[in-house]
């Protein structure tokens, strides 16, 4: 697809296969390139180093390393990493933990595709 998002890549991190598919479909519809995906926080760091994506979407509740710790390790590796959290949890303390760890935005599952795209764009331009 020819649009302004060509060349922008996204790493999708979520332990749920069906949720990864939903996120990828929403992004591809807007011209983003899926750099890769990861099923947990440990794999997220490995894939981040491998793909160096423009943006990461990050689930919170995942096996082994959960999303907030994964944000910390990615930011430690690359302080300029753009990470958007996508979680069913929106309790204030957890949102603050994610933002304090370095996430640039936080959206709630279930999400509207437009909300995801807006958050991705904010993370890039903000």
């Amino acid at each position: 697809m020819e649009n302004e998002n060509n060349g922008k890549t996204v790493l999708v991190v979520d332990d749920s296969e069906v949720m990864r598919e939903m996120i990828k479909d929403s992004l591809k519809d807007k011209g983003y390139i899926i750099a890769g995906e990861a099923k947990d926080g440990d794999e997220a760091l490995v894939r981040y180093k491998e793909y160096e994506p423009t943006v990461v979407t990050m689930d919170v509740v995942m096996p082994s390393t959960h999303g907030i710790d994964a944000i910390k390790t990615i930011i430690e590796h690359d302080p300029k990493a753009r990470i958007v959290v996508i979680s069913g949890l929106h309790q204030k303390s957890l949102v603050m933990d994610a933002l304090d760890a370095g996430a640039r935005d936080y959206i709630i599952k279930p999400f509207e595709p437009d909300d995801l795209i807006s958050a991705i764009e904010r993370s890039i331009t903000g």
Binding site: S16, M62, G88, L89, Q91, S93, K109
Partner: peptide
Amino acid sequence: NEIGNVCACAYLNAMSDLLGITLFPTV
């Protein structure tokens, strides 16, 4: 599993708001 996860998180968010406590689920 994801339907259950989203419903359960909504449930926990509601309880957290009401009770003023943080509730963090396992996978």
